[in-house]
Computed example of a mutant assay.
Amino acid sequence: MSSPPISQVTRGVALMILAIFFFTAMDATAKGLIERYPAPQVIWVRFVGQLLLVLVILRHHLGPVLRTRFPVLHFWRSASQFGATTFFFLSLPHIGLAEATAIADINPVLITLGAALFLGEKLGPRRIAGVVVALIGALIVIRPGAGVFSWAAILPLFCALSYATSALLTRKIGAQESVWASMVYAALFGTIVAGAALPFVWQPIAAGDIWLFVLIGCLGTVAQLCIIRSFSITEAGIVAPFAYLGIVFATFWGAVLYDQWPDRWTVIGALVIVAAGLYVWHRETRAARAPKS
Rank of each mutant, 00 (worst) to 15 (best):
S232I: 06
Q260L: 08
V141H: 07
G124I: 10
A152N: 11
A255E: 04
F47I: 01
P64K: 11
S80T: 15
A164N: 03
H61P: 00
P156M: 10
E235D: 15
G120F: 08
I106Q: 11
Q203S: 11
P5A: 12
A39P: 12
L58W: 09
V256C: 03
G269V: 05
V42K: 10
K122M: 12
H94F: 15
A160P: 05
A207L: 12
A197S: 12
A288F: 07
V72Q: 09
Q260G: 07
G63N: 06
V267L: 15
A167E: 03
V274W: 09
A102L: 08
L215N: 05
Q260H: 15
G269H: 09
T86A: 14
Q224G: 05
E99F: 00
L51P: 00
F231Q: 04
Q81A: 02
L161W: 02
M183L: 13
S293A: 10
G63L: 13
A164S: 14
L66T: 08
Y163L: 13
I205K: 07
P5K: 06
P144L: 11
I34V: 15
A223R: 01
F231I: 06
Q224F: 12
G208E: 12
V45C: 13
F249Y: 15
I227N: 04
L113N: 06
L55Y: 04
F189G: 03
S182W: 00
R127L: 10
S91R: 04
P291M: 09
P38L: 05
R286P: 00
F23M: 10
L66H: 02
S150P: 07
W76A: 00
T170R: 03
V132F: 14
W281A: 13
A146D: 14
H282R: 15
S178H: 11
H61Y: 05
A129V: 14
I247P: 01
S162F: 13
Y258F: 15
L135H: 11
V48E: 01
K292L: 12
G190F: 08
T68C: 03
I233S: 02
P144A: 13
E284F: 04
G208M: 10
F87I: 08
R289I: 03
L271D: 10
A160R: 04
I106H: 08
F249P: 06
V248P: 00
E235V: 02
D209Y: 09
T101A: 15
K122A: 14
P38D: 09
G32N: 10
G269A: 12
L73V: 02
V9E: 01
K172Y: 13
T191L: 01
A79Y: 09
F252Y: 11
G174I: 05
V248R: 08
A194P: 00
L245C: 11
S2C: 02
S182H: 02
I34C: 07
A19M: 05
A146Y: 13
V239M: 08
W253K: 05
G49C: 03
V9G: 01
I210A: 14
P4N: 11
R127C: 05
D27T: 07
S91V: 02
P262H: 10
F213D: 02
L123Y: 13
V9C: 07
T221R: 00
I20C: 04
V184K: 07
G269P: 09
V132L: 15
Y185A: 04
A276E: 11
G12W: 04
L58H: 06
W180L: 08
G96T: 05
V56T: 09
P291H: 12
I103Y: 02
F189M: 09
K122T: 14
Y37C: 05
I140F: 14
